[in-house]
């Protein structure tokens, strides 16, 4: 038990204690951003890596969480209507916005909204036995539709620009370094708790059932389980994680816009999970952090090169190391011990 949790404890100490001491505030808040992505990746690891549902639309759920939080932040900073509404000529606060003034309701919507949508979508498609590439295309179309919807509703959502210029979160000044450090610690703790919970789920009988559904859905049906229900529940859990990640992302990064949740960001996260190793939850988390870091590092040097590098990395991993970084590390460790 202790031995098994040692790596997790070591990473937790580094992330929660060492990183805040060593990193300057700018870098720390970048790391917080990667950790937000890692929460989404954890959900993808669960849905895709464990249960075989290749979801290319996690950006939708991430965005729902992000917009919920952004709306709340806009409403609590005072001074009447949100800035973008004034620019768009909106004169009265739309009824849809009213509930988001309440922090509990806003957070609940950020998590439960995506779960509800995933549950409805899952019920509809998994009952019809839509799976594999068809499910992937469907979720990707959802991401594309979401962007169109957000851009079209300029007065409600800020259109292409999304929402930015947030000044404080739950009464804390966002420009303050201590607020950013606090946010970082919150994001890291949320990720840690979700990781442990998901790991517990994966190691349980439920996790075995997910692997069985991934490898032989029809056979599972003839064992008396309803794969559609199990998949729907799992998909909803992964959507909830993405929603929470979106809600955390907004105060950390200070912006939410359609460009952050469309088809491309959704795909990038799946690529990150594949690179890290989709069959292990730690691989998904690692992939998100590594790819996030790599993106920042390379974009600082060569602005456009990153996309090509990302594509090349994905192809390399898929052909040479289908189990990702974690798979390679595992092989090395085994080679050393035997």
């Amino acid at each position: 038990m202790i031995r098994r949790n040692l790596p997790f404890a070591a990473v937790a100490v580094i992330v929660l204690v060492v990183a805040p001491l060593l990193l300057e505030p700018f870098r720390l808040s970048l790391l917080a951003k990667y950790l937000c992505y890692a929460i989404v990746a954890l959900g993808i690891g669960l849905a895709w890596g464990q249960a075989g549902m290749l979801t290319l639309g996690q950006g939708v759920f991430f965005g729902l969480g992000g917009y919920s939080m952004a709306m709340h932040l806009k409403l609590t900073e005072g001074g009447g209507l949100p800035d973008f509404m004034v620019w768009s000529g909106v004169e009265e606060l739309p009824a849809l916005w009213v509930p988001f003034g309440d922090p509990v309701l806003a957070l609940a919507t950020a998590v439960l909204g995506p779960m509800l949508i995933a549950a409805v979508l899952g019920t509809l498609v998994f009952r019809q036995r839509v799976r594999g590439a068809y499910f992937a295309i469907l979720t990707q179309a959802l991401a594309a539709a979401m962007v169109i919807l957000l851009v079209g509703q300029q007065g409600l959502t800020g259109g292409t620009n999304g929402m930015t210029n947030f000044f404080d979160v739950f009464g804390q000044d966002l420009a303050d370094d201590s607020t950013q450090r606090g946010l970082y610690l919150v994001v890291a703790s949320v990720l840690g708790v979700l990781y442990l919970a998901t790991r517990q789920l994966v190691n349980s009988r439920y996790g075995r059932l997910l692997v069985a559904i991934r490898d032989g859905e029809d056979r599972v049906r003839f064992l008396g389980y309803d794969p559609a229900l199990v998949k729907t529940v799992t998909f909803a859990l992964s959507a909830g994680m993405a929603g929470l990640a979106g809600a955390l992302f907004v105060p950390v990064v200070g912006i939410i816009s359609p460009a952050l949740l469309g088809v491309v960001p959704s795909l990038e996260l799946v690529v990150a999970v594949a690179v890290g190793g989709r069959h292990a939850l730690a691989g998904a988390v690692l992939g998100a952090v590594v790819m996030g870091y790599a993106q920042t590092a390379f974009s600082e040097q060569f602005a456009d090169g990153w996309l090509y590098l990302q594509g090349a990395l994905f192809i390399l991993v898929m052909t040479l190391a289908p189990k990702g970084i974690i798979g390679v590390a595992e092989r090395w460790r085994r080679a050393r011990t035997t």
């Binding site: 517990q200 789920l201 190691n203 349980s204 009988r205 439920y206 075995r208 059932l209 692997v211 069985a212 490898d215 032989g216 029809d218 056979r219 064992l223 008396g224 389980y225 229900l229 199990v230 529940v233």
Partner: peptide, 28 residues
């Protein structure tokens, strides 16, 4: 069709547990 990534005992346990409510499966 057996589930190759699961052990023999996990395969059997999965089969045996089909009447359990879904949430009780979350335990190890």
């Amino acid at each position: 069709v057996v589930f190759e990534e699961l052990t023999v005992i996990e395969n059997l346990d999965l089969a045996a547990g089909f009447r359990r409510p879904l949430w009780t499966l979350a335990r190890r």
